[in-house]
Design a protein around this nucleic acid. Sequence first.
DNA 1: CTGAAAGCGCTAACAA
DNA 2: TTGTTAGCGCTTTCAG
Lengths: 332, 332
Amino acid sequence: MKKPYGFTVHDIARLAGVSAMTISRAINNPEKVSPDTLARVLEVIKTTGFVPNGMARGLRSSHAKLVAALLPSLMSVVFQETVQSLSHRLQQLGYQLMIGQSGYDASQESALLDALIQRRPDGIISIGRIRTAEGRQRLIASGIPVVEAWDLPSTPLDMLVGFSHEQIGKEVAEFFLAKGYLDVGVISASDDRARRREHEFKITMETRRGATVHVVLGPAPSTLQGGRTGLQELLKSRPKLRAVFCSSDSIAMGALLEASVLGLKVPEDLAVVGLGDQEFAANLNPPLTTVRIDGTRIGRIAAELIVGRTEGKASHGNIVDVGFALIERQST
Amino acid sequence: MKKPYGFTVHDIARLAGVSAMTISRAINNPEKVSPDTLARVLEVIKTTGFVPNGMARGLRSSHAKLVAALLPSLMSVVFQETVQSLSHRLQQLGYQLMIGQSGYDASQESALLDALIQRRPDGIISIGRIRTAEGRQRLIASGIPVVEAWDLPSTPLDMLVGFSHEQIGKEVAEFFLAKGYLDVGVISASDDRARRREHEFKITMETRRGATVHVVLGPAPSTLQGGRTGLQELLKSRPKLRAVFCSSDSIAMGALLEASVLGLKVPEDLAVVGLGDQEFAANLNPPLTTVRIDGTRIGRIAAELIVGRTEGKASHGNIVDVGFALIERQST
DNA sequence: CTGAAAGCGCTAACAA
DNA sequence: TTGTTAGCGCTTTCAG
């Protein structure tokens, strides 16, 4: 085929009796075209159904109007809100979102990064840190603006929107201590961020004499089933367990369910804390005490950071700590 | 800047002492390059960190290695598995996934479609039907291969991978009838596919004298909260309600929870059926009877249909009915 | 096996 | 306000 993609600006130009440049202007800077030429051009565009070729546009103008997101997996409910809001905000701003899932194979992280970089996106949003040094190196070398989201590393690659996992661990521990819960457990997915929350949680708990922390690890992404078996395991070694900090609301829901099956009263016999404040958290029985993360805000800000950088009108700083909030409900 | 994107094939060519064409060959057809030239070129590529420009490649070769997915929302757990598997399979095949969320505004569906078409993807996967006739028209006109997923319309645009929502409604109704449940309800999200299941369910139930079906609608995407309030409403008008068919597992979980709060025994007092067979369904208490949809398979096949079409080696037919399975557990 | 020329479709830069 | 020229970075095509 000569024209694999239907109409080009030249076809439209011919049909409208103007030059190709005028078509480009009519689309991108309509105010620079006289009203009647504009009307004529738009008419032709409409009748032909012409849609300009974004690859050619991107190639010429070094502006792909495309943003890439790199995330562990589309399966985790915790990131869902962030990705949805990211995609939504980008669409509003006239950008498209491209997805890369890194969860399967850390060794292929760098190949995945290359696949994304190849597209010359206007920005790359990494949910969670890039794990390999090689990958981080590659990202920096590409010169593409980067936003790291869902974390607050001390040496960011570039821009950042997240919160401190260590701080969460600390605050939940302090909350347990204030309640007088000393024999406590953690059911944690074995991902890096959950481990860091758990670590700080443990350290803080153990400042108090007599406090003991037992930890069980499940696979990521976390599941309801993980919460059920996690609680069983925990109770096996600590039958007097008084409270449990779960690394996600799904796990917490599983723990709640298992407690009910075992005849344990929540919070009288066992207190449960989740993480995420997903929709269902407030609607469980009892309503779940959890750490609220504003994923919607993270996604929105990540989008705005990238677009702000690309279009040269930055509105936020480069580092945004969105914080978190411990929401106390009836499960503690 | 003269070179907004770092190295080009020409830079690499100069450094390796060959022509640009040889760089292109080394990357895309390494077998057509002599072993030692290849080694030299790969060495230079490695030390420079060169990543070819995918926009230029796509422009020249009319082969973007990019697939677009159009879906109502990234928020619904029901599509999560499909999207994750779609993205995963595409990555394996060397393609990237681009996301478009249509859920917010049906009136902007056609603008969103244009944004996707602009990128000249190798295919567009629509989860759920394109709602507007204009949108459907635009898609066809673009000439881009289309896969409609999660449904089985009688007049597909092009390729198809899904299952019959009507058939599901029918089978669940027959299941209820066989169990002798006659006073039954439906808690349904108000999206088109759920409505069609509910419609067929109602028709089939009402072939039996004395069977009554009450329907309550909640917003999409469906939530646990929707299941709780849905069951409350249903019981208000039908206190003797014997069974309920929920349009998602999340809603079913809410119904289960509400039943437990109200002191209703499941399945003795009330039977509950969900849809989706999400991970948690089998782990609820009691384990949930539900309609299993193999989202992973749908995603994988959708990816393969598009890539097969683009690369000219079709492996499936154009229409794939993946079916569904009513999984009976202890909630009925 | 390797290279030179040409052009994919668009827009920046300049000119009229 | 509109048009002309050139070239973004790559790969197709044809020639060696």
